[in-house]
């Protein structure tokens, strides 16, 4: 006797090809939302973290409060963070993105600061000697040398953000987390497992893609022994 199609859906199996085939549009939509939330959060996080890090570097007095505040934000559990933002934004995607931006700041500010601090003083001196102004020094010399540490921070922030986005299901904007949350209530095992696996895959792919970007942008770190920026990277990650 041939089994009826969609039998694994009826049996509520964990792994079900039929589920992936029949609900592919739902999976694609959730993945697109997940990627959108992650990219927006990390991008906005970078845009805010960069001036904050420069501020903390320029005025030592600002460094303590900036680092302290971002650490306090990081300690707030995601469930509480999203809930606290609900009165501000209502049940919207802004709740999730804002919460994730605040989390990414901690990692990004620290890593940008560590990267800039690890730029060899001789490199700065040489650039000044060649007549570089402060802006050109920053963008032409310091930032490229700090790039491995900065990208390391972006990688950590991205992977954490992919994972934390799922909690956004609380307000209905959790990307793949929405499918996981729905699957919990309808006890739909295939949906929960498929969405969870996709979520981990997304994190791994994003991490590898960023690593590739860093290699392409900083070809000099590949040759020879680990230079100074790499040591900064290790410290920031460890």
């Amino acid at each position: 006797m041939s089994e009826p199609a969609g039998n694994c859906l009826v049996r509520n199996d964990w792994i079900c090809g039929e589920y992936v085939r029949t609900r592919s549009q739902e999976l694609v939509d959730a993945t697109v939302q997940h990627i959108g939330i992650t990219v927006a959060s990390v991008a906005i996080g970078l845009l805010i973290a960069f001036p904050l890090a420069l501020l903390a570097r320029r005025w030592r007095a600002a460094a303590g409060p900036v680092l302290g505040l971002t650490t306090v934000l990081y300690t707030v559990p995601s469930l509480a963070m999203f809930s606290l933002l609900v009165p501000v934004f209502g049940l919207s995607v802004s709740v999730v993105v804002t919460g994730l931006v605040l989390y990414s700041l901690t990692i990004l500010v620290r890593n940008i600061l560590a990267g800039l601090a690890a730029v060899p003083e001789e490199a700065r001196e040489a650039a000044r000697g060649m007549g570089y102004g402060p802006l050109r020094l920053l963008f032409g010399v310091e930032l490229p040398l700090a790039l491995p540490a900065v990208v390391a921070g972006v990688r950590i922030a991205t992977v954490s953000t992919v994972s934390l986005t799922t909690v956004g299901a609380l307000v209905g904007y959790g990307g793949l987390g929405n499918l996981i949350y729905e699957g919990l209530h309808s006890v739909f095992k295939a949906q929960v497992l498929t969405a969870s696996v996709l979520c981990v895959l997304l994190a791994v792919v994003a991490d590898l893609a960023l690593l590739l970007v860093q290699r392409l942008l900083t070809p000099w770190t590949r040759t020879g022994r680990a230079g100074r920026p790499r040591r900064a990277w290790r410290k920031a990650v460890a």
Partner: peptide, 18 residues
């Protein structure tokens, strides 16, 4: 700890509950 970061706690909680 890198692996721990990539796995969503929420997903693991739901998977274990089911």
């Amino acid at each position: 700890s890198n692996a721990g970061r990539a796995v969503p706690t929420f997903a693991v909680l739901v998977l274990l509950t089911l």
